[in-house]
Simulated scan of single mutants.
Amino acid sequence: MASTASPTLRQQRLGRELRKLRERAGLSTSAAAALLGVNQSRISNIEAGRYAVGADRVRAMARMYSCPHDGLVDALAEMTGGRTRGWWDEYREFLPAGLMDLAELEHHAVALRVALTIHIPGLLQTADHARTLFQEVVPPLRPYEVEHRLSHRIKRQAILHGERAIPYTAIIHEAALRMRFGGPATVRKQLAHLLEMSELDNVTLRVVPFEDGTFPGNGQPVDYVYGPVPQLDTVQLDIHHGCEFLDAETELAKYRILLDRIEGRALAPAESRDFIHGIARSI
């Protein structure tokens, strides 16, 4: 397999998971290399995601590391090979790498759960709403950069439709519903789109009203991406300079608890739709 100068998030994750298995087995990189019949640098490059590894090699490493989780091994084997080209690759020279990683992560997800306080989730935004947000980015984006980001966001939304549509739970604070991005017409269209999306079998929309009085956490947008097995879940956070991805077991556990608490504060789906209807009528 060829080496990769700039591994994707998915390739890096595969390497990290293999490193975890090795360390849990109590093996050094030199010991693992000796057992596999390769040099130590090969193990280091595999674990850094810089060297594409095949499914058979991953299974051999898992056996050598005495991994007891067949589901995890199967999922890791599915992550092997070189860089997989997806629709997002056409944007690679135009957009930050984190957005490519996010699109690939969502593409391979089995479910998503998000919580936001002042923004509508990207996968539920209308084109007009998203364009308004991109036009307010600091430093300002050029018109063509706005359109690149807009088309990338709209294409990401395909995971909620069609035969491969995945379960999606969005927990939105009332503040996000009352923001007037783009003016009344854009807001009414956005709220109508939320109501339409909430009718899909795979989409659950829940609102946390102001009257609840509290909102667990610091209000930072949280995307929890479920992998084929819990060990391969990922948390994505929006930060001022881009995307941050977390996959440490302690962090995953922390954000599962946080999302459970936020969802526990939210209205039921039917009540949430009625709530959104009420806001829409007041605009």
Rank of each mutant, 00 (worst) to 15 (best):
E104M: 14
L133H: 08
H148A: 14
M100T: 15
P184S: 08
I166P: 01
V146N: 00
L141E: 03
R131K: 02
M179D: 11
A170H: 03
R180S: 15
I171E: 07
E196S: 09
Y168T: 10
R131W: 00
A127L: 08
G162S: 11
E93Y: 00
A130D: 01
R142Q: 15
R113F: 10
H148P: 00
A175E: 14
L191A: 13
V138W: 02
P139W: 00
L102C: 13
L160G: 13
E174S: 15
D101V: 03
I171T: 08
R178Y: 06
L124W: 02
L123Y: 06
Q125L: 14
E93C: 09
A97H: 03
I159P: 05
I171N: 05
H193R: 07
A176F: 01
L99Y: 03
L133Y: 03
R156G: 04
F134L: 09
G122A: 05
Q135R: 07
L95K: 04
L116Y: 10
L195D: 02
L191N: 06
G183Y: 02
L124A: 06
H129S: 08
P140H: 06
Q157V: 10
Q135T: 09
V138C: 03
A176I: 05
A111E: 04
A176G: 13
L99T: 05
R113C: 08
T117D: 02
E147D: 10
T186G: 14
H108M: 09
G162E: 10
G182Y: 01
A175F: 09
R113S: 05
L112P: 04
T132G: 00
G162T: 11
L124M: 06
G98L: 01
A130V: 03
D101G: 15
E196I: 01
V187P: 02
G183T: 09
A127H: 10
M100S: 10
V146R: 00
T132V: 12
Q190M: 04
P96Q: 06
G162L: 03
Q157H: 01
T186Q: 05
V138N: 05
Q190G: 06
I166D: 11
G98Q: 05
G183V: 08
A175T: 15
L95A: 15
L195T: 02
E136C: 08
A185E: 15
T169D: 06
L194M: 00
R188C: 11
I120W: 04
M179W: 13
A109D: 00
R180Y: 06
I166S: 10
I154F: 00
R113P: 00
L95Y: 02
F134M: 03
G182P: 03
I172A: 08
E147A: 07
L133T: 08
A158H: 07
L160R: 02
H193C: 12
V110G: 07
H129K: 01
L177D: 04
H119V: 15
I166F: 04
L112C: 07
E104S: 14
A103L: 00
Q157F: 00
